[in-house]
Amino acid sequence: MCLGIPGQIVEITDEARMMALADVSGVKREVSIAPVLTGAIEALIGKWALIHVGFAMALIDEEEAAATLQALHDLGEAQEALEAMAEGQKALRQDGSASEVQA
């Protein structure tokens, strides 16, 4: 369960909370970029990161991202991570404030 999944940071969503939107295999998910934030926050847009349980833990290059994704697919871990993200969204919807949740 220590495996991270590569994602590309596409948009800063909340500068104060250090949150950004990441594209993980086509799924958009809000993640914390606190662990990789060392300079200007905008500089992270377009960068690839290894994302573990919703936190960008290390910046990687695009080639490394592709190779890691392939290895995760072979292990079934990529699908597992994407399903877990979907579960997380479902958990939030369960509480009766469904209208606030973005699909």
């Binding site: 993640v31 919703g54 936190f55 877990a84």
Partner: peptide, 14 residues
């Protein structure tokens, strides 16, 4: 089941 402790934080806010 959640993906991240951030999901748990969001549940607490809501």
């Amino acid at each position: 089941m959640v993906y991240s402790p951030l999901d748990a934080l969001e549940l607490a806010r809501r």
